[in-house]
Design a protein around this nucleic acid. Structure first.
Lengths: 246, 246
DNA sequence: AATATCAATTATTGATCACAATATGAGATC
DNA sequence: GATCTCATATTGTGATCAATAATTGATATT
């Protein structure tokens, strides 16, 4: 949980030698993963000082990271200047997923055109991990594997324009995605991934796109089915502190 | 040029009363406009302290703004931690514009479905300003009017998911766009805008999308035609300081 | 008992400081 | 004359400080 870069390197006397220029990177990695993996709940306000204290650093690097996440629309700021995880209305959620279809469908199709045997075997391996995570009802494992599957596929599109946009979208629906998996009626499956892998092997970019779009659309429908009119509300209370490795 | 919020409000004694919580907003507006309007050239490194000094504030708000612009992919950081305006390779530029077609085409089509008489008259007015700016060879006026035309159209799509993504793209190609207009062979016209307005009046969303896509594609081709293999290079030197209102 | 008001705490914001790494420039050497 | 080296200056980073605004809690009043 702690970052505490003060002991990153030690000199001969064993004294602390603070590593410079990399604290905020660690904080950013922590926050990004936390958002995608559900460590922070929609509506939760992030206190600058408390986060910094919890991470063992000064408020300064946290400030920079929160600012960047606000710029990426992953967090929103209250009138008081605090930042919090946005609550998604059903309208915004379907908007988000409609644009996901467009962007990720395009990335998937491009990736299919650059497909290599190494990519296929890598994706197959990741999908296997996802299936075992589903079997074990491991929410964090599910989300992590699913995200890894999608992103390694999109990475093959080799577009450093598309990729940041997709990441921005994932950061936005990440917290809601996690909450949805907590709901009993939420379907757990990775059926579309097999179709995608098959289309990838056959060298059919259009089919790969179709598979991704179907996967996204299915997820969207499932999320909307468990979401109330004013956003997604958990039927039970959830502790704000949630452990995760990053 | 200066921001100098210390005199934003004065009390009865005429003493300075610093307005809190709005300095970085002004800096952000300044920088965003500066990027889109060509005040900063591709490759130019932005010094934190010099920018702050030039804007009449402490380095702190500038720090936050630069950080946010890096997060939005409008600026990139060097290994030294400085930030600079990215130089776009022809490949990245066409990638950028391909995604523009997708995103802005979609936004335009949605906007056409929500079209109102007020929107049409507003766009017509903006287009008139653009035409006079073209006549006067007023680069800043051109870019400003053109941007206003596109963004008021997209705003009618009423999507706060699509809008930030589009803004991110515009911030990325903004500096290059400005440079391109400096090149004599660059065509200056707004032919597509009339088609878009006509399609808007006829209530044909698909045609509106087609118009936007054609406009974007034309701009892309023009940019690529004047770009050398390793990015766009000006045939003459350009002073780094450029005045603009914001 | 419920609500409104007021005070105290706590929050972010902008400025300043200290430090280390980088970039810059002049000078010496080949 | 070109290049390498070293000293200087400048940069970003992380921490701390002062000031302001918002939130929370308690208290008093209806």
């Amino acid at each position: 949980m702690r970052i505490d870069m003060t002991k990153a390197e030690t000199n001969g006397n064993g004294e602390a030698k603070p590593a410079r220029g990399h604290v905020h990177e660690h904080v950013l990695r922590y926050m990004r993963r936390g958002l995608m993996v559900g460590a922070f709940l929609p509506g939760q306000v992030m206190s600058l000082r408390k986060l910094a204290a919890g991470l063992g650093t000064s408020p300064m690097p946290v400030r920079e990271v929160l600012s960047r996440l606000v710029a990426a629309n992953a967090l929103e700021e209250t009138r008081g200047g605090s930042v919090r995880v946005p609550k998604l209305s059903p309208e915004k959620l379907s908007d988000l997923f409609a644009i996901r279809e467009m962007l990720e469908g395009s990335a998937a199709e491009r990736a299919a055109r650059n497909v290599t045997p190494a990519l296929i075997s890598e994706l197959t391996e990741i999908n296997a991990q996802l299936l075992t995570a589903i079997d074990k009802r491991d929410i964090l494992g599910c989300l992590s594997s699913n995200q890894k599957f999608h992103f390694t596929l999109y990475e093959a599109a080799a577009s450093d324009v598309l990729m940041p946009l997709i990441e921005s979208l994932w950061l936005q629906f990440g917290p809601t995605m996690y909450m949805s998996l907590l709901i009993p009626s939420m379907p757990w499956n990775a059926a579309d991934h097999d179709d995608i892998l098959a289309a990838l092997k056959d060298g059919k970019p259009a089919a790969v796109r179709k598979g991704i779009v179907h996967d996204i659309r299915t997820t969207c429908k499932a999320l909307l089915s468990v979401a109330g009119p004013q956003g997604l509300e958990l039927p039970f209370s959830q502790g704000p502190e949630l452990q995760f490795d990053y």
